[in-house]
């Protein structure tokens, strides 16, 4: 009777299993135990003073892209350029024009946008058309 203990084609099976183990353990050996803490956003003084963006922080974190998408459509299709919050504050519905736009408060793209986007591997196409504000160092 066949001996159940024997592994046939031992070399080929071993190579296959080695490839399998290497593939599924990829995230472990790629990062090699080094910690990669989440990035800290650097807020400008103006943003710090305002305490809150156009909506609470948690909401902005999750929904900012949807807001920007909606704003773009509203500006382009309806020519409405002013957004007013529930508190009665008004903002310019624009990413990068003037003091009252997004980048008017969040002045540096590198410190504000890119940190999280790079960490989450998100490459928004905002800057395909918009010109990023000049970074003051």
């Amino acid at each position: 009777m066949p001996n159940k203990k024997q592994i046939y084609d031992r070399d080929k099976v071993a190579i296959g299993l080695a490839i399998f183990v290497a593939l599924i353990s990829f995230p472990f050996w790629f990062n090699m135990g080094k910690a990669s803490p989440a990035p800290e956003i650097k807020l400008s003084d103006k943003a710090k003073a305002a305490k809150q963006c156009i909506a609470p922080t948690a909401y902005m974190r999750a929904e900012h892209m949807a807001i920007l998408d909606l704003w773009r459509d509203t500006v382009v299709r309806d020519a409405k350029r002013v957004y007013s919050t529930n508190d009665g504050l008004t903002f310019n519905m624009s990413l990068s024009t003037g003091e009252n736009s997004c980048m008017g408060c969040h002045v540096t793209k590198a410190d504000f946008c890119d940190k999280c986007h790079n960490y989450a591997s998100v490459r928004p196409y905002c800057w395909d058309c918009h010109i990023a504000p000049k970074e003051n160092k």
Partner: peptide, 23 residues
């Protein structure tokens, strides 16, 4: 519904770097 993706990556990176934590 959207999620806070940065916190989630913090969690998953903790798993693969063997320093698990729940943000």
């Amino acid at each position: 519904t959207k999620v806070d993706i940065i916190r989630i990556k913090e969690l998953t990176m903790g798993l693969v770097s063997l320093h698990p934590a729940i943000p």
